[in-house]
């Protein structure tokens, strides 16, 4: 069973907003295996963001259980979750979330700093990932000096630098034009081709088409879960 990267059982999340309790996620059971490329889709209010936050270990469920890479993470403390995020998850955000004053290289090194990797090794690995995303000649540039596509590629390099079990891309093309979106999605598809497990959150159907499997959420539950006929069967 160590081929299973994500397994959730009855995952629930309630929010208390004043006197009202909002049931954002009402019990999701999902299993994602190593090497899969899954797009989570759903309209706003479907509980997709809340679900993503729990899968990304940024939030803890109200009820239910969640195993990431064989580890039961739904019952960990904040600091333990930070360690899980650091080691097992690579994030790619819609708004890139790079440190604007730091160079591309330093941005990519960031997760390694918190992993306690030494300076030389850190630099070697960060350079390697920046070259992988085609930014070998832009390493000393700072985010404001780069285009949106380049920034997102720095973010991808940063997500990969700790060799995570799961790459979590939350609307990665939301701030990019269609050409650049295509480039980023090709990049993700290529990474998946090399065995990287990817969970993609999007509300755009053409972006979701890049994934091999689509999971549709509605009102906090899984509405549809199917394989993409274009992309082929999961690995």
């Amino acid at each position: 069973m160590n081929d299973v990267i994500i397994r959730t059982e009855g995952l629930k999340k309630d929010y208390v907003l004043g006197a009202e309790t909002v049931h954002a996620v009402r019990g999701v059971d999902l299993e994602i295996r190593r090497g899969e490329f899954v797009a989570v889709m759903g309209p706003s209010g479907s509980g997709k963001s809340t679900f993503m936050n729990m899968v990304g270990c940024l939030d803890t469920p109200t009820a239910g259980r969640y195993w990431l890479n064989g580890q039961l993470v739904s019952e960990l403390t904040d600091d333990e979750l930070a360690r899980v995020r650091n080691k097992a998850i690579g994030f790619v955000f819609q708004t890139f979330n790079l440190l604007p004053r730091a160079s591309a290289l330093h941005n990519v090194e960031l997760p390694l700093i918190y992993a306690g990797v030494g300076a030389k090794e850190r630099r070697r690995r960060a350079e390697e990932k920046l070259q992988l995303v085609g930014l070998g000649d832009r390493m000393e540039h700072k985010p404001p000096e780069m285009s949106g596509g380049q920034r997102q590629r720095v973010a991808v390099a940063r997500a990969l630098v700790n060799e995570p079990a799961l790459l979590l891309a939350d609307e990665p093309t939301g701030n990019l034009d269609s050409t650049t979106s295509g480039e980023i999605m090709d990049q993700l598809a290529a990474l998946n081709g090399e065995g990287q497990t990817i969970l993609l959150v999007t509300h755009e159907h053409d972006i979701a088409e890049y994934a091999k499997r689509q999971v549709h959420l509605r009102d906090g539950v899984v509405e549809k879960d199917f394989l993409n006929q274009h992309a082929g069967a999961p690995a």
Partner: peptide, 16 residues
């Protein structure tokens, strides 16, 4: 705040 969020998402603990 944003920077702190990024650092935390990337694995910085409270203590860090």
């Amino acid at each position: 705040t944003r920077e702190i969020g990024v650092r935390k998402a990337l694995g910085a603990t409270r203590g860090n």
